[in-house]
Nucleic acid binder design. Sequence first.
DNA 1: ACTGTGTCGGAAATCGTTTTCTGCTTTCGA
DNA 2: TCGAAAGCAGAAAACGATTTCCGACACAGT
Lengths: 344, 344
Amino acid sequence: MSQRVTIREVAEQAEVSVGSVSRALNNYPHVSEALRSRVMEAAYELGYQPAFLADGLRRGQTKSIGFLVGTIANPVISTIFEAASEALAAKGYSITLVSSRNQADLDVASLRLLASRQVSGLIVSSAAESPEPSRRLLQELGIPTVMLDREGAAGAGLYSVQSDHGSSLREAVAHLAANGHRDIAFIGGPDDFFPTQQRYCAYAEALRARGLPLRREHARFASFTETDALAEALLLLRGEPRPSALIVAGNIILIGALMALQELGMVVGRDIALIACDDIHLTQLYRPPITAIRRDLDLLGVTAARLLLQGIENAEAPTEPVIKLPTSLVIRDSTRFVQRPEAV
Amino acid sequence: MSQRVTIREVAEQAEVSVGSVSRALNNYPHVSEALRSRVMEAAYELGYQPAFLADGLRRGQTKSIGFLVGTIANPVISTIFEAASEALAAKGYSITLVSSRNQADLDVASLRLLASRQVSGLIVSSAAESPEPSRRLLQELGIPTVMLDREGAAGAGLYSVQSDHGSSLREAVAHLAANGHRDIAFIGGPDDFFPTQQRYCAYAEALRARGLPLRREHARFASFTETDALAEALLLLRGEPRPSALIVAGNIILIGALMALQELGMVVGRDIALIACDDIHLTQLYRPPITAIRRDLDLLGVTAARLLLQGIENAEAPTEPVIKLPTSLVIRDSTRFVQRPEAV
DNA sequence: ACTGTGTCGGAAATCGTTTTCTGCTTTCGA
DNA sequence: TCGAAAGCAGAAAACGATTTCCGACACAGT
């Protein structure tokens, strides 16, 4: 069994006092260069690693932050995680990641678990369909928290980084309309999911602004599973009238929609125009390549990390509680063909 | 500021001693039902959460395990993580995830970080190209560790879960050969990466067994970036003679290869047969769907978790230090066409 | 020679829990 | 009625660090 080497042994080895070792290792003033180097050498020789638990207990702080996700097996979320992780690691923080597997009830339990681990900050991107209990819990926990793509922060220590889904979605509708499409359908995530709401509202507004029909059966909402997205897409595409263009909100939905199109023998870019939200590998490699709404996921992650660190270290200095990041429309072959008006 | 409620306050509230509270909360014997319920109630009323740090310090154990990856933005790894995470969470463990961003030097530093956090176990899937320093460090750390898809465990407390890449790869070569392909190329990850080695050896052996040519310039190795995979694929496909079939080892390589094919105007399933390792969404949705070697990622994650828990809780009881899981070949349209022999 | 300032040792308190110890009372069964 | 065992209190040690307090010493400048 590898015995843990304590600060006392380092002090012995370096022939100095325990307090001096602590001061030397923590870059405190009033410590000579000679002593510092002697301590460093002894610590290195013994392979000393300060005990995280004792340190944290004394300082009342863990230097670790909790990351709550609906699932990490989602390229968008994992990319954001990577970026945030790098920024946080640079400041000496480590991340404990917990997945609620897209179950709202697990959501609250996960938050409690993280709180009991005494994380010094929280990044939340859970897929909770009704985020209210979580928000209340967050409030009473009093841990600095950054929400990813969720409704604006209400209380103190609650920040939010979100993407401006609306503007690019309006742009997407404009692009389709310019190519002659009048029947533009929409499939989103759960209808109480914040990004879905943002996207749907922009979609509906853009249609109305152009006098295009907003059919109830052409705007559908699926859960976070591919099979459900597939089912909704099939219902949509089998109905009458069949839309000539489709906007899918999210990469899971995209997969379901593509499966549906495949099943119906429809060819993207010929039988139907397709626009996806979130520019993943699939959209670029699909034949034909799929028009997509892109956002800078690295920037999103880094921004979340920066905001959280502000909230933790500056105690109560919320420069800006909610930050909105831009999105852009990348046009590819799935929407380049022009729809001919059949009957006017 | 939310004051932390300590065990002492709970004892006061319940009018019992501190020791009794501790015993009651930890389900110890020799504690009456009446006392237990009184303690429970007091703890609930006060919203008592045991301080993780103090608890861990005393017990010398954190109930948290470290997960080291090259990057979590890889669908294969994130899927494994999800499965392992669920299994570990069920046993009360939480995971701190650290990404080494595919940099071998960061690898060792990350391991040290995790060790200083006093994790009680480790799951390692780093992409270190030369795993030796890591292995040595792991050995001296003495923390129970499960390696994912890495060379067999050497020492005590070092376990390994791997996939049987070889058998399906031989099957893949057989499938291609049966369809008349004689010039079968291969692109893998780094040549000192364990799964790549396994795959390449099986590939070379299968070619030899059939008397098929093993051309040096038709077996290439790329780093873990898509751009590098793209470059290697371009070199491969522009050379003479051009292979009639291609096996790509890994999902990053697949993306690079598809980009190359797209750039050269080659159509999968017509100009070239394609087999991918790892069955991701892209392989199923691509037109035509791509033949792939599939493995049960959930099983892999759960097995890793189970093995690790054994190593942690049973102290020194390695039922089986290395477990090999099966793979299978899923045949799709990318390899269904039959190659006509041009010249015999 | 006096005084300040910087450097360090030694001891002790502290963080919040678990765990052990002694000692007391109650209960139960034969 | 006696003895064993269970149930609990109260105190204290331990985990491994940080932090404070106080005293000692060296060395500089006046």
